[in-house]
Each structure stands twice: as C-alpha cells, then as structure tokens.
Design a protein around this nucleic acid. Sequence first.
DNA 1: TTGTATGCGTTATCAC
DNA 2: GTGATAACGCATACAA
Lengths: 363, 363
Amino acid sequence: MTTVYDVARAAGVSTATVSRVVRGSDLVRPATRERVLAVIEDVGFVPDASAQGLSRRRKDIIGLVAVERGHGPTDIERTSLLFVDQLVHAVEAVLRGSDCSLLLSFGRPGEAFQRRIRALSGKVDGLLVVEEALPAGQVEVLARRLPVVTIAGGAGEPGADAVRVDNARGMRALAAHLMDGHGCRRLAFAAGPADAPDAAERLAAFCAAVRDRAGVEAGSDVGAGPGAAGAGAGAAVDVVPGGDFSEASGRAAATVLLDRAARPDAVACANDQMAIGVMREFLRAGVRVPGDVAVTGFDDIFPGRIVEPPLTTVGQPSRDLGALAATRLLERIDGRAGPPRAELLPTELVVRRSCGCTDRGRP
Amino acid sequence: MTTVYDVARAAGVSTATVSRVVRGSDLVRPATRERVLAVIEDVGFVPDASAQGLSRRRKDIIGLVAVERGHGPTDIERTSLLFVDQLVHAVEAVLRGSDCSLLLSFGRPGEAFQRRIRALSGKVDGLLVVEEALPAGQVEVLARRLPVVTIAGGAGEPGADAVRVDNARGMRALAAHLMDGHGCRRLAFAAGPADAPDAAERLAAFCAAVRDRAGVEAGSDVGAGPGAAGAGAGAAVDVVPGGDFSEASGRAAATVLLDRAARPDAVACANDQMAIGVMREFLRAGVRVPGDVAVTGFDDIFPGRIVEPPLTTVGQPSRDLGALAATRLLERIDGRAGPPRAELLPTELVVRRSCGCTDRGRP
DNA sequence: TTGTATGCGTTATCAC
DNA sequence: GTGATAACGCATACAA
C-alpha cells in the first residue's frame, strides 16, 4: 500500500504538501502541485479513507437501512424491491454532488438487525432510516449520537428529521373516486404489514374516508359485507389483514375475498404489488376487473402501468422522498440545521382503468 | 463522542480490555466482560470504524459500482432499475453473514465517474464492478491495489475475477424456438447499449444463431428485410441500434420497425424492458403481438410476467450472479484465493405467450 | 487474565 | 509556500 510518505519522498516534499495537493488546497505553488500530482499518478496513490476519517472526524459516508420484505427467495427475487430501490437511487443521485457515498443495509426488524445497524452507525456520518427498520425508541437513541432522518417512518421521532408522504390525502381522494365516481358501496381493503407506518396510515385513512362519506348518505348500506369489522355503524370496510406488500400476499388476500358470501365491488390495496396480485388472482378465478370489481393500489410503480388493466393507484413521489431526505441529512451533517423538522410530501390520484374508468374518463 | 478511553475509565480497566470485549475475544474474565459491557451499554459506545479500519487494516466495507441508465428523470424514475437492484439485494444478502457492509455508487461511464470510483476505492476492502462502469484497462489498474470482481463485464480482466451469464446459450435457444417452433423468418433485433458487454453478446449470439440456422436451409430467405445489415449471405437480422435497455428505447425501436417495408415476424430484444416497450408500441399501433409479430426479451424480470401478453424471454440468474460475485470477493479479501477465475452462469429459455405459444405449449 | 506502549495513514496546527 | 509534529481512536505485541 502506498501512502503519503511514499509520495512525499518521491516528490521531494513533505507529507503536509502531499495532503494539501490531494485535498485541493490552493496554498501550494503550481509547480510543486504538478510534481506531486505526477508522482501520485505514477504510483497510483489513493488516500486511505480510514485514516482520513480518523483525522478529519468525518467519514464521507452516509448509511441507509431499510426493511427487507417478502418470504421466500422467489418472492424476494422478483417483487417488493421497487419502493426502496427508488429511494436508493434517488439518495445516491443527491450524493453524487458531494464527496459522500452511500452505505446500505437491509434486514428484517429484530434484534439481529438492530445490532447490525448499531455497528453500521460507526461507519457513517449520518443515517437514513426507512420505515420501521428500527423501533421508534432506538431511533431516538441513535439520533443522540448521529444525524438521523427517517423516511416513511412514524410521524417524527424526537431528535430526528422525518420525511413522509401524505397517505391520508391520497386515500381520501381514492375513496371519493371509488364511491362517488363509480358508485362502489362494498369496499374491501387488502392491508399491508402491521409494522409499516405507511401501511397503517393508508388503511386507517381509507376506512375513515369511507366512513365519512357513508355518513353523509342516509341509511347507507356501505360495508355491510360479512367480514366487515365493526360494521355496527353501517359504514365499514372489509379489511383483509396479513399482507406484507408482496404480490403473493395480494393473491392471498384475493383468495380470501373470493370466499366471501358478498363479494366487494372495490378492493383498495396497501401498495401496487399487492394490487397486482389481487387483480391477477381475481382474473384467474374468472372475476372480471374492473367489470365485476375495481382494484386499486398505492405507489405508482412501473409494473402498474403495464398490467392489464392498467392500475388505478395513488402516486407517491418516491424519488423526491429520497432526495429530500438525503439533502436534509447532508445539511445536518454540515452543521447547518435548525430543530428537527417533519416534512410531508403530496400524493396524487392516478386514474387508469382498473377502477372502471376508460382511457378518457369515467365509464 | 465516547471512546474506548471513556469506557475503560468508567469500567476501571485498560483500553486493551475494552477492545477485547468489543471484539469478542475470550481472553477476558466473564466478570470483567460483564462490567465492561454494562458500561458500553450505559454510555452507548460504538467503536469508530475509521479508527478500527486504520488499526486493523481492514474496513469491512465492499463497494459496488454500476452504470446508471436511462435519460430523463421520468425514465430513470420508473424503469431500468431492475437488474442492478437485484444484484444489490443479492450482494447485500451475502454480506449479512459477515461484518461487511455494502457501499454503492452509480454513474454514467466517463471521467467523472472514474474519479469517483477511484476515491471510493479508498473506502473499501474490495470492489464489485458491474458492466462497463469502468473501462477494461482501469479495472486492471484497480485490481492491482484491491480485490476486484466484475459482474456482467468483459470476459475477464487480467487480475480480476469475473462472473457472467451465458448470453450466447440463451440466445441460441431463443433463436431456435422462434425459427423452428414458430417458423419465423424475418427476424429483427432491438439492440441495447453499445457499452454493455451483455448487450453486445446477446446481439452477436442471436445473429450468429440465426445465420447458422438459416445456412441449414437451402435457398433460405431469412432476414431479407430492407434494413438487414450484411444481407449478402441471405441470412441476417434486421438490427435496430441505439437502444439503452430502457422501455422508452424499446418503444423507439418499435417505431423504426413499424416503418419498414417488410415488417419482421419476430423481434428479439436486448432485455425485458426494451421488449415491453416494443410490445406496447406495436399494440398501440394496432400490430398484434403475438398475432402479427412475436416479441421476446432477456432477463426475466417481474414486469415481464404481468404484461399482456406475458413475455417470452431468456431468464438469467441475477441473484445468483450477485451472490456469487460477493462470495468470491469476500474470499479474496480474506486471502484465500487462487488465480483469478471467470465464471459463467447458465441461462434458460422462459416460454410464455409473447412468442405465440399458448399457456400449454405451441400454438 | 490484564495493562503498557506503539503504530496505523492522514490532517491540521504551528513554526519557519 | 512549505515542513515538522501532534493528534485522531483503536488494536495488538509484548510485559507483567
């Protein structure tokens, strides 16, 4: 391994000068710089980041930790990667404008993953925590030692910045479209993982929106399906729990729904992959989408555009989410920052055909 | 920032003992260990990775550098992420069994990216180079300082291990299926980026396979299309260049093909995303797939299973590719290794409906 | 089993 | 402009 000493000797200067040249300081005579640069090129010197980090108290690395979903190798292999991958690319794109690199780690929530994250925190200047990769309390602990920004996590851990999307707003728009636009009355919801804040918010917002809307109509029979949870008020949603954001779990939810005495006329899903699974299973069973039942997703991922029928969904700005989080983190690392902020990005209804609309509007 | 010194003082031991406890050495009396552990927990000590790296001459970080494709934000946003993302997840999964973390960097081939990679190489113990993120010569230079494994790159840079998939074999199987199984004679190929070794191999292998097959038939008119390059021998493929692995570039290729006097009866594509783009554009123009023309891809990504018609393609074991590369790199870093190896993973024909087959076989 | 002392490669604070 | 030199936080050879 060649070091600054080797370069200094070969160039006939001190290590201090080499360091200056490497770091682009302008307190060095051009002639000297050229000479040093030539040697560096010649011997192929690359500064050791560990030594730099130790000396400068700055590693120029940020970490991103996220939940890995899906069960088997097959499932992980082909699905469920999209949201977090978009984040990764967005974050990396921001980092390209700095000297920072992105270190990442995926895992299932639990002791082991927490230990891993803890060790990882020693390698970075700041951390991006996606969803519930870390329980809320742990985030706070971490944030005491390190700048932390949560993405799609809880509403705001003390001490950490948070960037999220407005799940509720998107779901309200969706519920309105389904009920007012298409006259759907027997609503079902294929829920996502209980430990994903986004999933919980989407479910709650959808149910609330349906309830509110149903309340307006006198004697409504909305949600009177057999599996309806808390159907007492006459306005409820047939919630199918147990999903995990994967296409397979969407298919499973559809199977459950297929067995209901009263089939729903609309199924909203926690994300697009589950919606695709639901649609495919319905289609396979001979149930027409959207003819017999409307199906909708959340995220607006690429596959949703190319399935048949194209998926009506709620679009969330995944890339903006990642970019914003990365920018915030960089700010904090650089010291410029105020008190922790929680930011909410907008979502928008993306109407395609799986809800019953045609390419140019309502049916 | 709390250090080993703080912990040592609080626990009434030396820094050496703290270090031993942290690193799990068994030359420490249980009682002492407990005491130290308690203090560590109490003050929330996490060893500084820079200092560890400097002292141990090992950073426990490996890097992955890959080409970022697609043009605009829109395109990058929704497509083209799949292959490299699968690699990332596969690599990360392997690393979970070690103390290593994954550092990654994407970019477009060029000076700037090369500088970035060079700086990055100071932060890691080894490097995974995907496709042509780095020109061949640079890989060799890098490999002199650092263990390097190339993924889907050239056949084998000197000094670096290489893992690739057998593009030729898959393409031969595909050509045979199209020509023998479906009787296709006017073959076209939507080519991928010129700087992607995989893309070049797939194109060359397809053309060669078609030529070989056509040679067998006397007086064959295969590939007599107007755009046929080198149609002299009577066996050629109508190659549409300029693709970049994105769906958009697939649509562009389809537009070109739509203008041909003699339309192809089969279009093979450099990857699945391009194939999806080709299909969608054909369908939009009223050309039936597979009725009027067969379309095939390469990769076997998730969206290919859910488009209509489902995509016939050549499956490549992306995850195995990543896992194998990571394992090799770890081996080299640990010193156990032989001379650089080049490994070729198998591909397999995945027949679905876009080639004209039905769900249970040939039409 | 535990402590002492040195080195790891770079940066930065001083002098010059 | 440039050169000594002292940190930076940890691991380890060697002593005890």
